[in-house]
Each structure stands twice: as structure tokens, then as C-alpha cells.
Design a binder for these strands. Structure first.
Lengths: 346, 346
DNA sequence: CCTAAGATG
DNA sequence: CATCGTAGG
């Protein structure tokens, strides 16, 4: 666990900075348009004429975009939030979270456009599966956000990120445990009034092979957050890899022995929350059914909404009254998870 | 080495059987058309309505075709051959050869359509990379051809096939060497008047790590063919993994230390031919430049025709006067190699 | 079903 | 820059 940066900024100015983003919005919308049709066959069959590519300036081949998954209709979504919190205030901070299931594929699928529509002040990503030297240009060229990465030693596995419009006061990588911290699962950003944690909780695995590891994580993570919470209230954003209650997945009955809905994992979440934290979505919408953030790619699960709510905003009890809303962007594609957004005034 | 089948058929009827194929031609052309546009987003976002897919008959998801590589304009190619051989005869047997670089990907890229345009009596394939239990349905449903497979023990590696309109008199798998024959590199089909060999010669590898193995193969293969040639003349079809002479690749000067153009490999080919065989293409077109059958996928090699002639029809000396033509189908896509076709009268 | 790495060409 | 297998989910 390292503390790398220590700048002081005015936390209040977070939402103001987002206006910068509006400028680049139209620009990205254009670049997100369908790729030009492939060069005609005649071009390809240029054959023995030997076009002798004149080695001009080594133009990049314009990174062909994948068209496999359903493209997002970003225009169809309502990004506004007029809901007031318990103090009667509208939001002044917007935090989004997304398990991207491979940052490079997600960029290809135009996941970055989400940023410029939602315009979060802070964005937490999980399963980036990308070491920093392999980041796509679209990420490297991203001007508006400070970006922080915590990657696994194992290439192409796990990895989390935290993007922030304002420079955080400090950044912690990991949860203070040498075993778990080699896997790139946690980034903590300190702001004036709170901590924001981007976390990817270990999956219990097929046939629950890694359930022990997961339960050990639960203990260590709880302690880690407890320590933060002593300093400032905490906003945990991430893939908790558990559907807490029956209402949180489409098929509770058939999944009690499967990773993400075992007794142990569910109790782990109950235990964690009992320590002084709140699942903001369920607090706001206690009876909302069919509200999921993950759908397996298999068996058309997403189009049938056979999903799981695995991604959460969990806040310290004393922040509950600051929460304005917690939205699930289930119409946003690019991963097997969808993004979620928390609106707060603090 | 095994001899599995021993049927007797009239070799003369080979080309007549091809007429059967014409019937299914139009059918495949329709199925080769661009896949239907992906279901609309509205369908995908059906969401919590839970369409409860009624489990009718488990319809197959219609195998989405890849559109990455350049599609072939099969209509633009002239499949006729009126050229006469030294005896003044037009062809009565047509043999095609293609290193498909992964049979499953090749099927996705509509490689099978080539068969129904070219209508070869015999088709030899290399680098199928597909065990028989994983053959795509389009292959399994292929009615007109008897199909023979020789696969590697190593999944997804090497593998050759031989398709034949008429049942061969016998089939041999391998070259009679236990080491090499685990790698799926050779099928020999016996016909009344000749043998047809589908072969995938070992690549010398990056930094020539497997050059010794390759040179050992050369010896064994030469002996193997010699034995066949004592019985009947031989038609060797395949990826010989060598460009024989400077004229056979775009960049001879810079490739003398690279797999496929080392002194040893080139001499291996010279030595082999000196034993009583002829490279039919070079015999017919001794000065033809820019005639290649392979282009690396890298650096737009194919559109610049920076290629290699690695795929050959090599026939016993006494068959040379039977050859009508040897065509290189460089406009046919679906692999990093293109197909070649031999027209003979025998 | 999808992502990624690694081996092979 | 493709193909494939495998791990991981």
C-alpha cells in the first residue's frame, strides 16, 4: 500500500470542472460513428503492381471498431438528476462505476462515450485487464481526467482504475495485504470530505474453488475500510461479486450454490453493511425488482434480463442523507456489466 | 501409416461427378450473402419483460460470419480452362489445394464457396487446426465429397484434409514415421492411375528453431514419395513451406536467413525435384514474377503483393505432359494462403 | 459467450 | 496480424 500523491484542491469545484467535457462531446460523437466501409476488393487485389507504400508518415490503420455487441443509444438516456437528498439539496458530485470486462475491448465498443454523456466527476473501473504500457490511445489522449491504475501481476487479469476530474489529495493502492494486492483490486482516492474506493472483490470461482480466498478478502477489506472510515466517510464503488438478497438476481433459487449467491458471500455482505455502511441503491429502492448490473454473455441473458446486481455504491452511514440518487444504466452496453451512477451533495 | 479403405471405382468418371455440384451452387451463393443485420437495439433491451424463450426446438444461432478480411468476389474469377496439354487434350481432372489457416475461421469467411465455383474433383487442405469432433456443420453437411482428415495430437495445430468426389482406392495417413505422423501432415489418396498427396511440410520456425526437424522430414518424405512413385505416378499438393528460387518471393535478399528461404530448405526442394518430379507452375511459367500463394497478414503484405510461393503441385516426371494448367487463385480470400488449381488430362 | 495471454505461423 | 487452445468469468 503506497501513498503517492498529496495535492490539495477544493473539493467543491468538482462539478464545475465537468463543463470542460461538454466541449469534446460532439467531437467524440462523430468519432463514434460507424467505421468507414472496408476498402473495396479492387484495392486489396492491387496485386503485382506493387504499390510500394511510400513510407510517408506511417499512418495508423484507424483502429477498426468491433461491431459484435449491441451499440449503445447514448442519446436515448436521461442523464439529468433533479432528485433532492434528505437535506433538500440537489447533487453536486456525480460518481460512476463500471466493470468494463477488458478495457481495450470496451474502448473498441465505444465505452468511453459514456463518460462524455454521463460526465461523472469520478469514474471507477474494474476488470481493466490492461497493464499501463498497453493502454489504448483513446485512453492516453483523455485530457480531462487524472487516471490511476492498479493492475494485477498476472497479465490480462483483474485490474482496477479510478478517473478523477480533480486531483485527489492522496491515492492508496491495495488494501494493505501483500497476497491480495498483487491482483490489482483496489484503489482509494482521498478527497477533502470523503474517500472513494474503486474495488473488484475476488470471484468465488466455478465450483467455488476460490471461495476461501474471497472470504479472507472480506475480512481484510472490512478492516481496511474501517480504518478509512475512522478518518473520513467512505464511498465504496465496485463489483462486490455478490447479489445480496433474492431480489438482487433473476434466479435466486437455482444459484444458491453458485459464485455470487452462496450463503457465505451473502452473509459477508450483511456483515459488512452491519459495520456502519449502506447499499445506496437498495436503500433508495427497497422493493425494486429486475434491477441488475450484470448479465452473463451466455444464453441471451441480457435481452431476457436474467441478471445479477453485483455492482454497488456502499457509503458510510453518515453519508446516507447526502445521497440524491443511484441510477443503473442498464441501457449502456460495452461489457457484461452496465455502469451505475451515484448522485450526491456533500 | 494405415491403409483404411479399398474401393474400386472408374477413375475416368471423376469430372462427370462434378456436375452434381452445379445444382447446389446457387443455393450456396444465397447462403453466402451478407448476414442479416443484427437484431435492433430495441430487441436487445427487451429488459424485464422476460421474453421467456419458449424452448421451441433450440434453433441454432445461425453462426454469425466474420467480416474482418476482404470478401472474395467469386463471380469475378474465370474458372474455365481450355488450355491443352502436350498430348493436345483438354483437362478431365481438376485438383485444388489450399492452406486454410484454420478450417473453422475459413468456413466463417466463406471459404467453402470456392469449392462450388472451382468445382475441383479433389481438394487438398492444410492447417485445418480442427479435430474431427469439432468440424463445423457446413463441413459435416457437405454431401458431394468424401472427406479424409489427418490431425495433430496437438489441438489447434497443423492438420491436413483431402476431399474427393469419387471414393479413392485407398487412403494412407502419414509418411510412415511415428514422430512426424502425430502432427497431421500428410494424406495420400490412391486412384486408378496415380496417387494424390495432401501435405503440410513442417515450418522451420522463428529463428529457425525447427529447421533440423524440417530437414529430417525432407529425407523421410522423399523416401515415402519414392515408394509411392514405384507403384503409380504421384501428384503432390500442398504447402511445401519453401520458396524455391528468388523468383518465388517478393523479397529474396532480406529473407535468406528466414524460414522458407534458407539455403537448406531451397536445396531440399532442388534435391527433391531432381529425384524425378516437376514443379508444375514453374514448368509452365518459368519467368512469371509476382506469382505468390502466401502473404503474411502483417504489414498489408497481400495488398502490396509482398508474398511467397509456398504452395505447389509437384508431379512425377511422367505426368508432366498430362498437365494442362496450374492456376493461382490469388483473388480468393479466406486465409493467408490462396488456393491453387491443377488441370490435367489422365 | 466474451476477454485476455501465449504459442505458432 | 491472423489462427488456435486455455484460464477466468
Amino acid at each position: 500500500m503506497q501513498v503517492l500523491r498529496n495535492f490539495f484542491v477544493n473539493n467543491k469545484s468538482l462539478t464545475l470542472v465537468t463543463k470542460k467535457l461538454i466541449i469534446s462531446l460532439e467531437q467524440r460523437r462523430i468519432s463514434a460513428m460507424p467505421p468507414k466501409k472496408r476498402k473495396a476488393a479492387s484495392d486489396e487485389e492491387g496485386g503485382s503492381e506493387k504499390a510500394k507504400s511510400q513510407k510517408t508518415k506511417k499512418e495508423k490503420p484507424a483502429a477498426k471498431k468491433k461491431e459484435k455487441t449491441c451499440p449503445t443509444d447514448y442519446e436515448a438516456i436521461d442523464y439529468s438528476c433533479t432528485t433532492k437528498n434528505k437535506h433538500g439539496e440537489t447533487f453536486n458530485v456525480r460518481i460512476s462505476n463500471w466493470n468494463v470486462d477488458g478495457l481495450r475491448a470496451w474502448v473498441q465498443k465505444d465505452g468511453l462515450s459514456f463518460l462524455e454523456y454521463e460526465k461523472p466527476d469520478i469514474l471507477c473501473l474494474q476488470e481493466t485487464k490492461c497493464s499501463e504500457d498497453k493502454l489504448p490511445d483513446d485512453i492516453k489522449e483523455l485530457q480531462d481526467y487524472k487516471m490511476f491504475w492498479h493492475n494485477s501481476n498476472k497479465e490480462g487479469y483483474a485490474g482496477v482504475a479510478l478517473f478523477s476530474l480533480v486531483e485527489p489529495l492522496s491515492i492508496k493502492y491495495g488494501i494493505g495485504n501483500d497476497e491480495h494486492d498483487t491482483e490489482g483490486r483496489c484503489i482509494t482516492a482521498e478527497y477533502e470530505k470523503y474517500y472513494v474506493v474503486s474495488v473488484y472483490v475476488p470471484n468465488a470461482g466455478r465450483r467455488l474453488v476460490t471461495l476461501p480466498k474471497r472470504l479472507e478478502w472480506n475480512k481484510i477489506f472490512k478492516k481496511f475500510i474501517k480504518e478509512l472510515d475512522k478518518q473520513k466517510p467512505v464511498i465504496i464503488c465496485g463489483d462486490m461479486n455478490v447479489a445480496h438478497s433474492e431480489i438482487d438476481l433473476a434466479n435466486p433459487k437455482t444459484n444458491t450454490k453458485n459464485a455470487g449467491f452462496t450463503k457465505e458471500e451473502r452473509e459477508g455482505m450483511t456483515d459488512f453493511l452491519s459495520d456502519g455502511y449502506v447499499d445506496t441503491f437498495r436503500k433508495l429502492y427497497p422493493d425494486q425488482t429486475g434491477a441488475y448490473t450484470f448479465w452473463t454473455y451466455m444464453r441471451n441473458a441480457r435481452s431476457n434480463n436474467v441478471g445479477w446486481r453485483l455492482d454497488y455504491f456502499i457509503v458510510s452511514d453518515r453519508l446516507v442523507d447526502n445521497v440524491c440518487d443511484n441510477k443503473i444504466r442498464s441501457g449502456v452496453f460495452g461489457s457484461d456489466h452496465c455502469p451505475i451512477t451515484l448522485f450526491m451533495n456533500i
